[in-house]
Design a protein around this nucleic acid. Sequence first.
DNA 1: CGTTGTTTGTTGTATGTACAACTAATCTAA
DNA 2: TTAGATTAGTTGTACATACAACAAACAACG
Lengths: 167, 167
Amino acid sequence: MADTPWLDDDQHLAWVRFAAVLELLPRFLDSQLERDEHLSHFDYYCLAMLSEAPQRTLRMTVLASMTNATLPRLSRVMNRLEDASYVRREPCPGDRRATNVVLTEEGWAKVVQAAPGHVRQVRRLVIDALDPEQVEQLSAISTRLLTVLDPDQKMMASALRPTQPAR
Amino acid sequence: MADTPWLDDDQHLAWVRFAAVLELLPRFLDSQLERDEHLSHFDYYCLAMLSEAPQRTLRMTVLASMTNATLPRLSRVMNRLEDASYVRREPCPGDRRATNVVLTEEGWAKVVQAAPGHVRQVRRLVIDALDPEQVEQLSAISTRLLTVLDPDQKMMASALRPTQPAR
DNA sequence: CGTTGTTTGTTGTATGTACAACTAATCTAA
DNA sequence: TTAGATTAGTTGTACATACAACAAACAACG
């Protein structure tokens, strides 16, 4: 608890700027999806994960890990998405405690519809705002940060983009 | 609305990783401050801003800009901080619509007490997890992103760190 | 088998935020 | 000077999330 090295000016400036990004970027992502598709970014993320999963199906716990969400949160999000008939719940055959979440045909259609606008936003706000080297740097930096934030690499599955494979 | 260039694999990976950071880092920051100081990260940010302002005083609107918050949000946060007697509100002499928020002595003491733990967390999660060059890169990247997220550079005041000057 | 402990998922409760509506003060311009 | 527009801040309402408590199924072990 004793001596904490203070941040020097460069470190401090870097942190202030980064903190502002942390505050603003999620809101921009949410508002575009909310406005255009009535989805939160987290909703979209969940649907995107499911769209890439085998059988378009994932267990609650697995999806929670992949999306870095708590289980209570995911449970309520799935309630909403189920009410919108984008997903449905099925009992897991092997383990009667567990629940499988399945992306419905409507859910698939929704992701396909929402993806272009979302990708455009991600490009505008992040990818196209940076040089290619900076995108590479951001990737490396994020990897470093995740070694502390997510030591088990639970979230490591490709996502966010519904690839357009044969149905 | 037409053709949206998809993300290539590198871009996609960079975004997935960065999105995970956006999801996780704010929670880590909040939980440390909440646990140790019963403050949200946003609460702390506000107090830190005030601690560096002239007279330790800022107008609501100005503080809202600096913290990238909406005014309704700030209003309620200030209610809480006022109940905790960390700040007090004063009518602005020049403009009777406006309200000045003043950091109290208790508020100053609170920031001074909370700062080391918070800085330690920022170091652990971000600064010390990166190489010095990466800190520099993150600073530059954040600056780029803010040109889109915050074109007017409203949030540009140094902050987050209560310098330890003569009272 | 039963008992204990763990995992899975849902729900009660408190709290925090957004959006819109609102009041009051200020500014602008005829 | 006064009507209309703008700005500052607060509050009503809806909703999302966290944390803790909970029920049900499984697993381990005597």
